[in-house]
Computed example of a mutant assay.
Amino acid sequence: MSTAYGDEPRYRSARFRDGQFHNATAPKQPGGWQLMKLWWQFMFKDSSRTEPPEALSVTPLTQDQLRRAADGTIYRLGHSTVLMKLNGKFWMTDPVFSERASPVQWAGPKRFTPTPIALEDLPPIAAVILSHDHFDHLDRDTVVKLAAKTDVFLAPLGVGDRLIGWGIGAERVRQLDWWQTVEVDGLQFTATPAQHFSGRSFFEKNPTLWVSWVIYTGNHRLFFSGDTGYFDGFAEIGRRHGPFDLTLLEAGAYDERWAGVHMLPEQVIQAHRDLGGDWLLPIHNATFDLAFHSWDEPMEKMLALSAQHGVRLTMPRIGEAVRLDRYQAAQPWWRLKQPRHADTSVTATSNAM
């Protein structure tokens, strides 16, 4: 791989040894024959429960709506793709606009719904914030197309090298190790630990780093988890950078067999508490079929657990605006056939099933 800095900064990371990156503590996750068995089961499973029976409703967005939106407005565009209007500019996490979260577009997990706005209709993006290199978080086609309207790409060590290899100028790529901070247009971004893994083929073993992100606007603190299992790093992040006005935590595509690298719903609640979070917005669900649980289980479980534990939960429909200055309690939009706000929403139609 090439590098944005010319001297392979990943090799200097305390997390990089023996030719690969490592977690602080090795997580429990399937490997070897167990992993192959899981892949086989996943390929031939009954998807009648893991995919919605009809297209989910989304709230459509236009560039004009986004430009007129109040500062501090957050939009979930699907899976872990979140568009944020902060300090007058737009910022985006883990953008995936392709139909499939896959190395090819003729096979692999297919979107349940279209994105609420086309990629070409997005406004200029101050920075794209990447958590790791898996296909449901780092989509080459999306990133390459976004390059024309994005100023800066923030990435973990090694992930930035991939971007440069795809033709993005090295001067626009910032690669960070855990606990490193960079400022972009008045916002502070700190790459914080996560417990996960990386690689885009069976032949790669953790060639790039995985991170979570702390975003500080000067007025608000946000936390974006990327993908991670539950670990004591959340408490450390909370001590160093919390409390947080909003936590964006992965809650979906989980299973007891890989709980070391993807949190179970009960662990999401605990992570939010460890971080000192005020609101919780679950992500990593309602977009792709990536596990064995029913497609709506993550939302139902988060709704029940938040009520049980007194956590302030918000779960907007895909494309629906959330304001940082106005708490919006979660509503079970996924149970409804018609959108909650008829004047601004449409029921999406899709050939995704």
Rank of each mutant, 00 (worst) to 15 (best):
E99K: 09
R100H: 09
A101Y: 06
S102I: 03
S102W: 11
P103Y: 06
Q105G: 04
P109D: 06
P109L: 02
K110V: 13
F112G: 07
F112A: 07
T113K: 12
T113W: 12
T115N: 14
P116G: 01
A118D: 15
A118N: 15
L119C: 07
L119Q: 12
E120T: 10
E120F: 09
D121N: 13
L122G: 01
P123Q: 07
P123W: 08
A126R: 13
A126L: 03
A126F: 00
V128T: 12
I129F: 05
I129L: 13
L130P: 08
L130W: 07
H132C: 08
D133A: 07
H134Q: 15
H134S: 15
F135T: 14
F135H: 14
D136K: 12
H137G: 13
H137P: 10
H137T: 15
D139L: 00
D139C: 02
D139F: 02
R140N: 06
D141E: 11
D141W: 06
D141N: 11
V143A: 10
V143G: 01
K145G: 01
K145I: 04
A147G: 07
A147Y: 11
A148W: 07
K149M: 09
K149C: 10
K149Q: 10
T150N: 10
T150V: 07
T150S: 09
D151W: 00
D151P: 00
F153Q: 08
L154Y: 02
L154N: 02
L154P: 01
A155K: 02
A155Q: 01
L157F: 08
L157V: 04
L157E: 11
G158N: 03
G158K: 02
D161Y: 00
R162M: 14
L163C: 09
I164H: 11
I164N: 03
I168F: 01
G169D: 15
A170I: 01
A170M: 03
E171Y: 01
R172S: 05
V173R: 00
V173E: 01
R174V: 14
Q175V: 12
D177P: 09
D177V: 12
W178T: 10
Q180C: 12
Q180T: 11
T181Q: 12
T181R: 10
E183C: 10
D185V: 03
G186V: 04
L187A: 10
Q188G: 04
F189N: 08
F189K: 03
F189C: 04
F189T: 07
T190M: 05
T190G: 08
T190K: 04
A191V: 02
T192P: 03
T192F: 05
A194S: 15
A194N: 13
H196N: 13
H196E: 09
H196K: 03
S198Q: 06
R200I: 11
S201Q: 03
S201L: 05
F202Q: 14
F202V: 15
E204H: 06
N206H: 05
N206S: 06
N206Q: 03
P207L: 10
P207K: 03
T208G: 04
V211T: 14
S212H: 01
W213D: 07
